[in-house]
Design a protein around this nucleic acid. Structure first.
Lengths: 137, 137
DNA sequence: ATAAACCCTAGAGTTAACTCCAAAGTCAAA
DNA sequence: TTTGACTTTGGAGTTAACTCTAGGGTTTAT
């Protein structure tokens, strides 16, 4: 059980952010000390790491909340609901990966062909790189 | 040369957003009509498509502006600068793709193992899926 | 035992990225 | 020719996700 400052430092976020996430229902601490300090478990840290990763690749906190909320039990979601929801999210992530790869290819093309020594620098902007891709497709 | 409404509809953004992007130096129209209407070329549309894609995968407008600004000419950037900058961005995108794949794997695991009929539903949350991944690594 | 470094809450302030509004000019169709 | 759908500008308003401040309690190192 670690205090808020420790987990903040370990994951590179501010303590304010952690309290904000708690308020938003993203990540509550597992408990409190006698004096009211938040105490986090390793599980909490794993969850927070997931949140940060998901945020970094463009998910909103609300979407992340939905992801974290996936559970199968009597009260909340049925199996079917979970299957459906995860399917949608899988497609969404796969689409993002595709888009990311397109951007990556543009950048690589740019990196490779821009300054080719004697050759004319024809592909020296993202846009010209994009054009080449479009031509190729 | 198409008007702002046309390009907005084709790319699924609002005309307000396009004017906002212009103000931010992300994408200016190629010209204006007699009456002052913004006119866009197919090139502009390609550029805007890139902007939208980059935004969708988590780049900020400022980062996108940097990407679009890459050019090699006497006035602006040297070859070395471009090489350096694109290298950094390539690493960044590759890291994002890795993170995205981690999330994708969690989701797939969840999708596959959550509702396995008779078997107990052990991997029924992102967190338990994450744990399995951590155990495996 | 006291200063420094930590933690608490409530609420105000900030930034990015839109989004909306008012007032007015332009264009195509009936 | 006038109605309706477009466009213009400038500026105000909104939302998400923090970030900061004030005023206080707690822990730890010296």
């Amino acid at each position: 059980m670690v205090k808020i400052g420790e987990i903040a430092k370990r994951l590179g976020v501010s303590t304010d952010t952690l309290r904000y996430y708690e308020k938003q229902g993203i990540l509550a601490s597992s408990g409190r000390s006698e004096s009211g300090y938040r105490l986090y478990t390793e599980q909490d840290i794993a969850q927070l790491a997931f949140v940060i990763r998901a945020k970094d690749v463009g998910f909103t906190l609300n979407e992340i909340k939905e992801l974290l909320a996936i559970k199968v039990d009597k009260q909340s979601h049925s199996c079917e609901q979970v299957k459906q929801f995860t399917s949608e999210k899988i497609s969404q992530v796969e689409r993002k990966i595709t888009e990311m790869n397109a951007i990556l290819n543009s950048l690589k093309l740019l990196h490779k062909s821009c300054c080719g020594g004697d050759e004319p620098a024809i592909h020296c902007s993202i846009l010209s790189a994009l054009e080449v891709q479009n031509d190729a497709s």
